[in-house]
Design a protein around this nucleic acid. Structure first.
Length: 491
RNA sequence: GCCCCCAUCGUCUAGCCAGGCCUAGGACGUCGGCCUUUCAAGCCGGUAACGCGGGUUCGAAUCCCGCUGGGGGCACCA
């Protein structure tokens, strides 16, 4: 039974794609690729108040950046389109009517205000809220009366009549049983005619012939409601797989509100897509017992949805940082131009390089990157360790306090400046020679000179080797900065 | 409150389904050391977990029950 795997990621454009969504989509994608199936992207924008075109764009962009691709979607089209739910409203209307005809749903004329009152009353009595069921068995005359009042009905699915428990067969969780008495008749179409998630999702998954519905565990409790609809419509539901929820350090579900959970922010800070993917693979799943690093091909080959864990996972930033560093070092060796590209874009973001970079700019950045070496774990480290290559020194007060306060420092810096100035050029060998010789002549340990010089030139106590740093900075700037530091510390 | 899910080091997890191979393995972090002009990187070493209580069994991290804890869901959000 060679069933074609068709799976989908359903994103709602109500904000930037966040880490949890990206992770979810990555697993959906791995599954599709492992089974040589079809990956579909569907935009679930039925919440018109919060959805925007811009967000849809950014979600697609971010997924592409992550390295994912899809055969069908709003931007690439496909045989089951459209792939944007707002463009499928007629479909939902049609199946809502069919559902009513089959007795699986009914119009409900209660207004949001009335329902709110019911809800509050239940709350006061400390009872779990359930819909009163007022519109469940309306006579045609009563409907007409409501219509005459100008009421537009919402549509509710009939769930309370299901006399037996509903079992969800979940690929990662096994069988999960829900008793119908805890389920409620649920609104699937708003009074303005727009569908709600649970309904649109069912209609689309069926029409798009989705074979596997892979989504976050927050949807597990929705599943019985959806199963009721599949059955009422006479449809075969897809296979379900509910992925564990990704938690923040506060042990709460990562959400768009929390900030800094947007994939885009990681991109901006200079994280690498390959590192993110590898890191994602280690959340909720572990391809092998004693290994962390995998190529994409390996992940695709090894991916087995049954092996996914069931417990929520905390997003561990420090592990991501480590892994990004590993990939960064690798890239430095194999494709250093990519690190340069990354550095350039980070510098541009911060206004330290113009929009149009010249070959000379790139060459300079390449030298900086080389000097910084594996201190760059994330793109932004170019700034944290090497901003002074691109702008005036911003002195770290603690560094100044520690290394520039000695009264003999200004004279030393001046003396060094003089020697360097009189030499020609400033290779790292020349720099080293000048520094070491001066130290020797003054009868001091070289590090006693090296530290103050580093602070004078970079403003920091940490960074690339001093002599490389001096070479990249060049004679003129080195001399200027040494003098400037000497002058300001005299005070 | 009700429903559902989950439970191994601080974190990601292996082991659990097919109980002994587990004095519980790996990784991140953290701590110490080496290297070193600083910081990284690298190398070496240490730290740290089967939530609790009952069963079942010769034997339980592994199976069963309860408790506790954590998470998710209960919208005319997705």
């Amino acid at each position: 039974m060679a069933v074609t795997v068709r799976t989908r990621y359903a994103g709602s454009p109500t904000g930037y794609l966040h880490i949890g969504g990206a992770w979810n989509c990555f697993f959906v994608w791995l599954f599709a690729r492992h089974h040589a199936g079809v990956m579909v992207i569907r935009i679930e924008d039925t919440d018109r108040a919060r959805s925007t075109q811009e967000y849809e764009q950014t979600i697609l962009e971010d997924l592409r950046w992550l390295g994912l691709d899809w055969e069908e979607g709003p931007d690439v089209g496909g045989p089951f389109g459209p792939y944007r739910q707002t463009e499928r409203f007629d479909l939902y209307g049609r199946y809502a009517r069919e559902l009513i005809e089959r007795g699986g749903a009914y119009p409900c004329y209660c207004t949001p205000g009335e329902l709110e009152t019911e809800r509050r009353r239940a709350q006061q009595r400390r009872l779990p809220y359930r819909y009163s069921g007022r519109c469940r068995e309306l006579l045609p005359a009563e409907r007409a009366a409501s219509e005459a009042e100008g009421r537009r009905p919402a549509i509710r699915v009939r769930i309370r009549d299901v006399g037996r428990s509903i079992v969800v067969e979940d690929l990662v969780r096994g069988q999960v049983e829900f008793s119908p008495e805890h389920l409620d008749d649920y609104i699937i179409v708003r009074s303005d005619g727009s569908p709600l998630y649970n309904f649109a999702n069912v209609v689309d998954d069926h029409l798009m012939e989705i074979s596997h519905s892979i989504r976050g565990a927050e949807h597990l409790s929705n599943t019985p409601k959806q199963l009721v609809m599949y059955e009422a419509l006479g449809w075969t539901p897809p296979l379900f797989a509910h992925l564990p929820v990704i938690l923040g350090t506060d042990r709460k579900k990562l959400s768009k509100r929390l900030g800094d959970t947007a994939l885009r922010d990681y991109r901006r800070q200079g994280y690498l897509p390959e590192a993110l993917r590898n890191f994602f693979a280690l959340m909720g799943w572990y391809p092998e017992e004693d290994r962390e690093m995998y190529t994409l091909e390996e992940l695709i080959a090894k991916f087995r949805i049954e092996e996914i864990g069931r417990s929520p996972a905390v997003f561990d930033l420090s592990k991501l940082n480590w892994m990004n560093g590993v990939y960064m070092r690798q890239m430095m060796e194999r494709d250093s131009y990519r690190v340069v590209d990354l550095a350039v874009s980070i510098l541009q973001q911060h206004g330290l390089l113009p929009e149009e970079v010249t070959e000379a700019h790139r060459t300079y950045v390449a030298r900086v990157v080389e000097a910084l070496g594996d201190r760059i774990k994330v793109g932004e480290d170019v700034l944290t360790y090497g901003d002074f290559f691109f702008r005036d020194v911003a002195f770290d007060p603690a560094a100044v306090e520690r290394y520039l306060r000695d009264p003999q420092v200004p004279a030393l810096l001046t003396a060094l400046a003089e020697r360097i100035e009189s030499g020609d050029g400033l290779s790292r060998q020349a720099a080293e020679e000048a520094v070491r010789r001066l130290a020797e002549e003054r009868g001091m340990h070289s590090r006693e000179l090296i530290h103050p010089v580093r602070v004078a030139l970079s403003g920091k106590t940490a960074g690339p080797g001093l002599f490389e740093l001096m070479e990249v900075l060049g004679r003129e700037r080195v001399v200027g900065r040494l003098r400037a530091a000497a002058a300001s510390t005299v005070v």
